[in-house]
Amino acid sequence: MRRRIHPALVGFAALVFLFLLGPLVIILGASLSNTTYLAFPPEGLTLRWFENAFEISAFRRTMVTSFSLATLGTLLSLAIGIPAAYAMARYRWHLPRFLGNVFVLPVLVPEIVLGFALMKSVATGLDTPIYTTLLVGHALLVLPYCVRVVGASLAQFDFSVEEAAVSLGCPRWRAFFTVVLPNIRGGVIAAFVLAFITSLNDVSISIFLTGPGVSTLPIQLLAHMEQFFDPTIASVSVLLMFVTVVVMALVERTLGLTFLAR
């Protein structure tokens, strides 16, 4: 038997979803408006603001930087996060328990503090190139997602399957790549997606680490907003939302959306 929910609650929830999605619809509308100011509902339809977004070299450059940073940072983080998650799941008894907490430190420490500390000690202290510092910062930022999400996947994995492969003469490293990795594929994809999006949208770390010549898209957007207030910003925002849609479709295809409700 299904109990009916009070209509007032349903109405309230409907308003909440309007509140959640309305502003994004407004951005979409404003990006299509054929006006030099942000208008909603749009007055006349045009795609020229999207063209404009690609014509402004600062946006073009930072788009490339942001995507390469998110991709490389996430891959780097997975490359060191997966072994760590594996070690903690497989050899739990040989490693101290606090190790799990160490790997989530990057989400516990406020991002803005981490950004400042990296700027002070690494970027300025060691005089590392801007892109390298950004890469390290982003890899660090997404490490908790990599370790935790892959770890959750590994917790479901029956290691006796791997044992079987090894006892039948398969080298350990090969057993990992041919037996373990295919079984935790879902977790790795999920970790990649979460980490990629987090890195792509990051402001608080990048704001300290970007410098002359190298910036990321969100930082460029912030800077642009302080000087101009035209629909170009809306169109770049829509492009970023489009990335989100692609990512969600990817999650839906590979893991199903139930994953998102955990």
Binding site: I80, P83, Y91, V102, K120, S121, V122, V136, G137, L143
Partner: peptide, 26 residues
């Protein structure tokens, strides 16, 4: 035991060198 530590070390180093030290020095 050695293998476990070897696998966890890169991640541990990343956190220690680029989070632990900078924050403590701050």
């Amino acid at each position: 035991r050695r293998l476990a530590w070897a696998l966890a070390t890169p991640a541990l180093l990343l956190v220690a060198l680029f989070l632990g030290l900078p924050i403590l020095s701050t």
